[in-house]
Design a protein around this nucleic acid. Structure first.
Length: 577
RNA sequence: UCGGGAGUCGUUCAAGGGUAGGACGUCGGUCUUUGGAACCGAUAACGGUGGUUCGAAUCCACCCUCCCGAGCCA
């Protein structure tokens, strides 16, 4: 292809995501140029409804919906429900909700593989009539044994050359429920000597006497993935069937079925590497295990990499989409550093979150020279770099709270915050100067700190131009509202919890601090009535959102989406070592 | 053992017979009423060995490493 014709990254305008080149886009561009499929692009996202969608699925559907959008095509949502023993309606609903939340629309193209059960049955009959499939009576362990091992050909089933009429009769008996589960299967007659195990007479239909969440008990035989998937794609007129790398050696089988049968079209299967993320696990099975063993509260726990967990945590769909574009699409399998996701999240939240003040672990400050019973208000902008977000009034009075962590009796080097003898700024308010700290006689714990303020410094600066190094966020005690704040962190403390060489289980590496609940938090009064899901930056702390499940008007609950970058933490570590 | 796939900065994605580029990370700096943000700079890579060529990361050969595959799961 001429280089100038190649899909290039779109011009970068502020706030717009950049489209990066990827090999799938290149293929689609070529296909359009050669007028393959008459220039049409049709993709689909085919999740199995046996669990909640996670960020790995998001990579797949962002690609499928994204390509369709970009090339004026369509993307279908198809629930791949061919195994009723594992699938549930709850999952179907969550899948739809999560995709919608991410901003994609399948319009009227919501399909189920089970929509095609009648057609698939007919295709199977067609295959039998063509002498390309047979009913095998080998029990499961024998089927496996006959299939053989890598490097050596398998053995033909003794039922392989059954007459077509008998196959037809037995398949019909399977369908009618006359045969026991496990006793018979329909198999494609391909090649028991193929080096590709998928081609050694794969199972096409099995008996499963299980009701289906959509077809009820109409069927007791169900098609296998390889058969159902390629045909569903063809029935829907899919042009590009994008799937993950582990299906690469299923492609010959995908193509084989479509070649044997009279089908509407023959989509092209293209494989790409699935997403892996550091400090997390991305597999339904392991996520289910985290739930079952009580490490998290459910699929929607804010620490889970599920879309419902991330939504509750405060992630934005846009951050996830931008992440997908930045990591790109390739065939190489790898692990993306979660810090890139976090960077993009902060990048977006920084632009869009109103700033407010919240003290999570309060310590009382008494302003000795501020009159008792008096108060005043300071004007505080909602965003320091975006005046269009406006401002609010923050009340100030004699007793306020600051963060316990913002005071040190014996400050280390490079400490900018409050300490004996120091003067600091209260954000958007004034300068205060340390007087003394009052300790509990028994425990030695500091119960309150006395300071004086400089009334001339209203707004935050002294007219004499003197500078202070530190600025603290604060809340007026008399005006504060109480709340619970849940501090979430990475779920694992190892970058690759799934591949430790020491023989440990991944659950051994759960971060014990992945959730820290703060119950005595003080918020500025403007936060009263904050609606579920609302996002804020708590100044100097991080990005937080109102919990969508547990927060009530009487008892506000906030989740920490992500902390602010903390360069003091780095300095502190450097000093200690 | 056989088949399939993949190897480019620490990570991820590019480019590609002619100076290997971006982003994150890391390190340093500027600025700052968030130790935030922003800005500037530095860092660092073509798995190996041969061959073809004026020139190879790119083409060829061989080798090495890693991933997937023996469900009546998807």
């Amino acid at each position: 292809m001429d280089r100038s014709e190649r899909a290039r990254p779109s011009k970068e305008t502020p706030g717009e995501r950049e489209a990066s080149a990827n090999f799938i886009r290149d293929i689609i561009v070529q296909d359009i140029q050669s007028n393959k499929n008459r220039g049409r692009v049709a993709t689909r996202f085919p999740p199995e409804p046996n669990g909640y969608l996670h960020i790995g699925h998001a990579k797949a559907f962002c690609l499928n919906f994204g390509m369709a959008e970009e090339f004026n095509g369509t993307c279908n949502l198809r629930l791949d429900d061919t195994n009723p023993s594992k699938e549930e309606v709850e999952y179907v609903e969550s899948i739809k909700q999560d995709i919608r939340w991410m901003g994609f629309d399948w319009e009227d193209r919501l399909y189920y593989a089970s929509d095609y059960f009648d057609k698939l049955y007919e295709y199977a009959v067609q295959l039998i009539k063509a002498g390309k499939a047979y009913v095998c009576c080998l029990p499961p362990d024998k089927v496996s044994e006959y299939r053989g091992v890598f490097g050596r050909p398998g053995t033909d089933s003794p039922y392989r050359n059954r007459p077509i009429e008998e196959n037809l009769r037995l398949f019909e008996a399977m369908r009618r429920g006359e045969l026991a589960e496990g006793s018979h299967v329909l198999r494609a007659k391909i090649d028991m000597a193929s080096p590709n195990m998928n081609m050694r007479d794969p199972t096409v239909y099995r008996i499963l006497k299980v009701p289906h969440h959509r077809t009820g008990d109409k069927w007791c035989i169900y098609p296998m993935y390889d058969f159902a998937h390629c045909l569903s794609d063809s029935i829907e007129g899919i042009t590009h069937s994008l799937c993950s790398i582990e299906f690469e050696d299923h492609r010959p089988l995908y193509d084989w079925f479509l070649d044997q049968l009279e089908v509407p079209c023959h989509p092209q299967q293209i494989e790409f590497a699935r997403l892996n993320l550091s400090y997390t696990v991305l597999s339904k099975r392991y996520l289910q295990q985290l739930i079952d063993e009580g490490f998290v509260t459910g699929w929607y726990d804010p620490r889970m990499p599920t879309l419902s967990g991330m939504r509750r945590r405060g992630y934005t769909p846009d951050a996830i989409k931008t992440f997908m574009e930045r990591i790109g699409i390739a065939k190489k399998e790898g692990v993306v550093d979660v810090s890139l996701l976090e960077y993009i999240l902060r990048e977006q939240l920084n632009l869009t979150s109103p700033r407010v003040m919240a003290v999570l672990d309060p310590i009382k400050i008494v302003i000795d020279n501020y009159p008792e019973g008096q108060s005043e208000e300071f004007d505080a902008p909602y965003h320091p770099d975006d005046p269009s977000m406006g401002s609010r009034k923050v009340p100030f009075s004699r007793v306020i709270y600051i963060e316990r962590d913002d005071f040190r009796e014996q400050p280390p080097k490079k400490w900018f915050r409050l300490a004996p003898g120091r003067e600091i700024r209260l954000r958007y308010a004034c300068l205060i100067k340390f007087v003394n700290a009052v300790k509990d006689a028994k425990t030695g714990e500091i119960v309150e700190i006395h300071c004086t303020w400089d009334p001339e410094s209203r707004g935050g600066n002294a007219p004499d131009g003197r500078k202070v190094q530190g600025t603290s966020h604060w809340v007026s005690a008399a005006h504060a509202i109480s709340a619970e704040v849940r501090l979430y962190d990475r779920l694992f403390n190892k970058p690759h919890p799934m591949s430790l060489k020491d023989g440990s289980k991944f659950t051994d590496h759960i971060n014990p601090e992945s959730l820290k609940t703060m119950t005595n938090c003080k918020l500025e009064p403007s936060l009263k009535g904050a609606p579920k899901g609302a996002r804020y930056q708590f100044e100097r702390l991080g990005y937080f959102c109102v919990d969508s499940l547990d927060s009530t008007e009487q008892h506000l609950v906030f989740n920490r989406t992500i902390s602010l970058r903390d360069s003091w933490e780095k300095i502190e570590k450097a000093i200690k070592t």
